[in-house]
Design a protein around this nucleic acid. Structure first.
Length: 944
RNA sequence: GCAGGGGUCGCCAAGCCUGGCCAAAGGCGCCGGACUUAAGAUCCGGUCCCGAAGGGGUUCGGGGGUUCAAAUCCCCUCCCCUGCACCA
């Protein structure tokens, strides 16, 4: 007969009972609170295996903390703002084949349902229902009264408030920013719009404004602005086309774009074309070949030095301005070009960087060392350039030629110098792609375009960053190395464009026609959870949620009577909201997968520190790794997806929960293997039937109250496990907690093998085991709890106390010892190929125990230090030769001091059974002179 | 390039912080045994090499070092993964 458990039936039964008992609704009380959140899901599909992992982790922890008598707030919202849902609606409306395939085949949506989803609203409605169903089927212990979608009008009022707060602090600013742009499509392009060069990033070139004799500006494009101190000449490409043009800067003001006269520039024709898109208006005056410039002089704006314009074919006009500074002391290209012209001596080299292991002129040195002959050897030149660049960047220090910057490291000076030059009006920034070719899907080459009139959140603000760092210093991170990662992300953060022209979202309150971008509207929403219950239950209208109300609830500002009048919300409710916020905030733990580190989680910290007082800053972040399925990466469009509902259907909620949280350590990527999931199911079934057996036997059998040796051992192991489990769970080490459960099952196996069968002990064991398993597999645990005749829900039962009295190291070591003895006997049987009739066991001589005692008393000492201590005692002298060897072995074997004879005597019958021998003789006649080999914790063995 | 993570006995994966209980947990796979009419499940045992007494040998990406002792600490080196933004 195949024994199986109807998981689905059990799950349904308990989910209904929990819901009826409103078991997981959280309300403030006198207990300690525990507020845990996960980054809510974006609903352009069903919840998948990745969500399952990220959400089940906090779910399990929430259940654990609840059993620890914490008042746990654990709930969810749905993220629906942004463009993907909009895009999906269009695809479905257009009956896009690929989309229909993916959603019917991978997401498991029936085609007739899917084809209906032609508007964003329908999609949101449909997938939020699906998500709720998935959460419920998995037995999540959520407070559903607090659920919301980011498109809810009441929620958008909250986002509006958030933006007013940021604006008040000067953190919402208007400006322009560079994007990758296709002139043919007249649209910014995203990664997936790009045919060639999708990895291209934007690179900032510094344009240093040299001036010609007739007062024109010749901007030198460079990635190494610090080398301006060593310019000996400048290069132009004699064959390329250059222009002279009037340049204006387009400056944004509240009243629109203002043009500022920026002088007359000389630059490559291509450059002029590009700069038009980068906040500059350009009127071309004349066009000419580069050779026309050769021989003229320009003035270095930093050093004031006049240098000649020389021709060089290596100068590219498709990058930068087509005008290049020549720094032959440090740039191999420049040195070679100068040498090719035969002008090295005449022009001279100006060193500006001191570099260890190099002389005054690193470029000259490396060119000579590599034997580069001319400009034609481009590969070698590239290599030399890279090498020098790298070394100078990491190890170089500016020398005395760099007035005002001497002594600074190259890596530090770059940004500073650029900033200084821009401030003084001596330089500007120009953007280029990091790759030469970037082509749009339409086939047209892309360019960099400055988008004007964009609104930003000013994450670059130094004071703001300081607060964020401060917050990070105080937070807890799991894993701990995240702290450093976040510090770095904060430093690296620049302003973020926070509004869009299309997509779902909150209307931007400070200018018509914009929608708040979707990463910016989901930063402080855990605060909303604390009051969502009131908004949902009392059906509070969006217009009642005024700025002053939120100010009062979240910041404690304002007069409650006036707010009552203004909003029409009763004073009691407002007060409750405020109190509930104060009770639950801050968030104790925020959980997410690692993809949200550089964006959402960083914004989460930023926005909290900007808006809330310190006591409400985030306390902790937990980040888990990704999920793969049978080694394959998840993909919403190509599969595999493994919807959560499919897991519930095929394996059951408990199996899915337990497996996904324990199959990999938290920061590691987890690979789902269906075979292993099946095994998890079998384990749960075995526990179920074991419980059933014990429950049944309890009804009829008499219980032996007396505790045997092995009963005591099991209770010791059990109580120790409670302790360890608790520590693991506090630290989100769910896999370790899971392994502990498996180990307990192994212990139980051993207990039975050793003849343990005390019903009271078994029941005690199961009761604890069920409680330890409950956060992971709550349904089957409730079922077993009921089976054992326990009161109430195990889900809300108290976590077991550790009974220190039962923890018995001596007994545990004894069993460890016994297992080792069995191993040894087996080994001998194996190697000697004997089938013994009798087993003789000999424990060590007393002096060896004395030795062990000394070793134990001097733990931490090295062997070298140990020897004199031992030899001081005369009784050891006669074993002098043997002592070092024995000491070594004792340390190596990790020997323990226990009453070995007692353990062996107690296990005599057991050993006889195990090895099927007539007799086990302890310290009997010394057969074959074996006894002398005995060591403490490692008896001598003779088989007959 | 910068930053973070990783490379362990067929595969997956612990151990590394806090050096000796490490030939290195656990799972999968494979082999053998018990149970069974049989299969499955379960239980027991084996799974780097050698070994007729519990032992020995060679292993933890590669090279070097520290130490009585290194998978674990230090230095160098090779390889893999992820992120570097306006996309959720």
């Amino acid at each position: 007969m195949i024994m199986s458990v109807d998981f689905k039936k059990i799950e349904k039964k308990w989910q209904e009972r929990w819901e009826k008992a409103r078991l997981f609704e959280a309300n403030p009380d006198e207990r300690e609170k525990f507020f845990i959140t996960a980054a809510f899901p974006y609903l352009n599909g069903v919840l998948h295996a990745g969500h399952l992992r990220t959400f089940t982790i906090p779910e399990v922890v929430a259940r654990f903390q609840r059993m620890k008598n914490r008042n746990v707030l654990w709930t969810f919202g749905y993220h629906v703002t942004g463009t993907p849902i909009l895009g999906l609606a269009e695809l479905i409306k257009n009956r896009d084949e690929k989309t229909i395939w993916a959603y019917t085949q991978l997401h498991g949506i029936p085609e007739e349902d899917l084809l209906e989803l032609t508007t964003p609203e329908k999609i949101v409605e449909y997938f939020s229902k699906k998500a709720e169903e998935a959460f419920k089927r998995m037995g999540f212990s959520l407070d559903w009264r607090r659920n919301f979608k980011t498109s809810d009008e009441v929620f958008t009022k909250f986002i509006e408030w958030q933006f007013y707060k940021l604006k008040e602090k000067g953190l919402i600013v208007k400006g322009s920013h560079p994007v990758r742009y296709c002139p043919s499509c007249d649209n910014p392009v995203e990664d997936h719009d790009i045919l060639i060069g999708e990895n291209a990033t934007l690179v900032e070139y510094t344009l240093i404004k040299f001036t010609t004799e007739d007062n024109c500006i010749m901007p030198m494009a460079t990635l190494r602005p610090e080398t301006v101190f060593g310019v000996t000449n400048v290069w132009v490409n004699p064959e390329a086309t250059y222009v002279k043009a009037k340049v204006y800067l387009e400056k944004e003001t509240d009243k629109g774009v203002k043009l500022i006269d920026n002088g007359i520039w000389i630059m490559a024709k291509e450059c002029a074309k590009k700069l038009k898109h980068q906040n500059r208006k350009i009127e071309i005056i004349e066009e000419f070949k580069g050779e026309k410039l050769v021989g003229k002089k320009v003035k270095n704006p930093i050093t004031g030095k006049e240098v000649p314009i020389l021709p060089a074919k290596f100068v590219k006009t498709n990058i930068g301005t087509g005008c290049v500074m020549s720094v032959p002391a440090h740039a191999p290209y420049d040195y070679i070009a100068l040498r090719d012209l035969g002008l090295v001596d005449k022009i001279g080299l100006i060193p500006l960087i001191k570099l260890p292991n190099y002389g005054k002129f690193p470029a000259k040195e490396i060119v000579e060392k590599m034997g580069i002959k001319s400009q034609e050897e481009e590969d070698k030149l590239e290599e030399a350039t890279k090498k020098i660049y790298k070394e100078e960047f990491h190890k170089g220090v500016l020398n005395e030629n760099c007035i005002g910057y001497e002594g600074l490291a190259v890596r530090e000076v770059k940004d500073k110098l650029t900033k200084d030059l821009i401030e003084k009006g001596l330089a500007e920034i120009m953007y280029e792609f990091s790759e030469e070719k970037v082509v749009c899907r339409c086939g047209c080459p892309c360019m960099v375009k400055m988008v004007k009139g964009q609104w930003f959140i000013k994450y670059s603000d130094e004071k703001w960053k300081e607060l964020a760092h401060k917050c990070i210093d105080r937070m807890k991170f799991i894993p701990e190395n995240l702290r450093q990662v976040f510090h770095e992300k904060i430093d690296w953060m620049k302003d973020k464009a926070c509004v869009r022209r299309r997509g779902l979202g909150t209307k931007f309150p400070f200018e018509e026609g914009w929608v708040i971008e979707s990463l910016s509207d989901s930063t402080i929403y855990p605060a909303y959870y604390t009051i969502a219950k009131y908004i949902n239950q009392y059906n509070i209208k969006p217009e009642q949620l005024t700025l002053t109300l939120f100010d009062y609830v979240f910041l404690g500002k304002g007069n409650i009577d006036e707010i009552e009048k203004e909003t029409g919300i009763s004073k009691d409710i407002i007060k409750n909201m405020r109190e509930e916020f104060l009770y639950y905030y801050p968030v104790d733990w925020r959980c997410s997968a690692k993809d949200l580190i550089p964006n959402h989680l960083t914004f989460y910290i930023f926005n909290h520190v900007a808006i809330f007082p310190e006591e409400h800053w985030p306390r902790g972040i937990v980040v888990n790794g990704y999920v793969t399925i049978e080694g394959k990466k998840l993909s919403k469009s190509k599969g595999p997806v493994l919807p959560v509902l499919e897991v519930a259907e095929k394996f059951g909620a408990d199996v899915g929960r337990f497996y996904i949280t324990t199959c990999a350590e938290l920061p590691q990527d987890a690979d789902i293997k269906f075979k292993e999931m099946e095994n998890t199911k079998k384990v749960l079934e075995r526990i179920y039937f074991l419980t059933k057996e014990v429950a049944d036997r309890k009804k009829t059998e008499k219980v032996n109250e007396e505790l045997t040796y092995i009963d005591q051992w099991l209770l010791s192991v059990l109580n120790k496990a409670i302790k360890q489990y608790s520590e693991f769970m506090d630290n989100f080490e769910l896999r370790k907690a899971g392994i502990l459960i498996y180990q307990l099952l192994d212990n139980l196996k051993w207990y039975k093998r050793r003849g343990g069968d005390n019903l009271n002990v078994l029941e005690e064991f199961l009761e604890v085991l069920i409680k330890l398993m409950c956060p992971f597999t709550p349904h089957i645990c409730e079922e077993m709890w009921e089976m054992l005749g326990k009161e109430g829900f195990v889900s809300t039962s108290k976590f077991p106390n550790v009974n220190e009295d039962f923890i018995n190291e001596e007994i545990e070591k004894g069993e460890e010892y016994l297992k080792a003895v069995i191993e040894d006997i087996k080994e001998i049987i194996n190697v000697a190929k004997v089938k013994p009739r009798k087993i003789y066991l000999y424990t060590a001589d007393d002096w060896k125990y004395d030795l062990l005692k000394i070793i134990k008393e001097n733990e931490g000492k090295t062997i070298k230090e140990l020897m004199p201590i031992i030899m001081k005692e005369s009784k050891f002298r006669k074993y002098g030769k043997e002592i070092p060897k024995v000491v070594n072995q004792l340390i190596k074997n990790n020997a323990e001091l226990i009453n070995e004879v007692k353990v062996l005597e107690n296990a005599k019958e057991f050993l006889k059974r195990e090895f099927d021998v007539e007799d086990v003789i302890i310290n009997g006649e010394d057969k074959a002179n074996k006894k002398r080999h005995a060591l403490p914790f490692k008896p001598a063995i003779y088989l007959e």
